[in-house]
């Protein structure tokens, strides 16, 4: 473990995680809205927002999958020190990190069981561009309709079609975050 692995966590975990959770809750409860998520400095290629989301939600009881270029010794070391989360394959993960391309095929991730739809993965997807534009969203949490710049629309539509099964997504870009729960329906304009 490198000394870098020991830095970049929350300075005041109870307060920072509370504030971070409220942003993530707002993002998940209002798909299409974009929120700031700061307070930690994870090693690249993890974004600040992805690092904060992990610190807020993951711990030794949640297996994490590092996809593609995310799986570096620095990221592994940082996760081991700050989260203690076990690293696993895509099929067993509670949380998975990577770019949309890294995470393919997303059909590998847990979508819950018909009697326990909550036992599903949350994908923390790194995107280069996160704006309230593009595909049209509607469903719970959205008054009328919203828009969000999203990758992989056919796969996300297929995911929504499985409701109440499906994975849920957090999209991170630098210090910003938006979310897409499985309940959101997507329409290409």
């Amino acid at each position: 473990m490198t000394p870098a692995a020991l830095t970049g966590g929350f300075a005041d975990a109870p307060l920072q995680s509370a504030q971070a959770f409220r942003s993530i809750l707002q993002a998940m409860a209002r798909p299409g809205t974009i929120h700031d998520l700061t307070g930690a400095l994870p090693p690249p290629p993890l974004s600040v927002a992805a690092g904060v989301a992990l610190l807020t939600l993951a711990d030794p009881s949640t297996p994490v999958h590092l996809a593609g270029a995310t799986d570096t010794p620095a990221v592994r070391g940082w996760l081991a020190f700050h989260l203690g989360a076990p690293l696993v394959g895509a099929e067993e993960a509670d949380f998975a990190l990577g770019t949309w391309a890294d995470l393919q095929p997303v059909s590998r991730f847990r979508i819950g069981q018909p009697d326990y739809p909550d036992r599903s993965a949350t994908l923390i997807v790194a995107v280069d561009h996160l704006e309230p534009e593009g595909v049209r969203l509607c469903g719970p949490g959205i008054r009328g309709a919203a828009q969000l710049s999203l990758p992989g629309i056919p796969a996300l539509q297929a995911n929504a079609a499985m409701f109440p099964l499906g994975f849920d997504c957090l999209f991170t870009c630098g210090t910003r975050i938006a979310a897409l729960p499985r309940s959101t329906r997507l329409e290409v304009l």
Binding site: S17, A18, F21, I24, L25, M28, A29, T56, L57, A58, D59, S61, T62, D94, P117, D118, S120, T122, G141, F163, P164, D168, P181, R182, S183
Partner: peptide, 16 residues
């Protein structure tokens, strides 16, 4: 740790 467990449950509850 308890709060993280609760927060994960709340997010899944929001999603379904």
């Amino acid at each position: 740790q308890t709060k993280r467990m609760l927060r994960r449950a709340i997010l899944k509850a929001i999603a379904v």
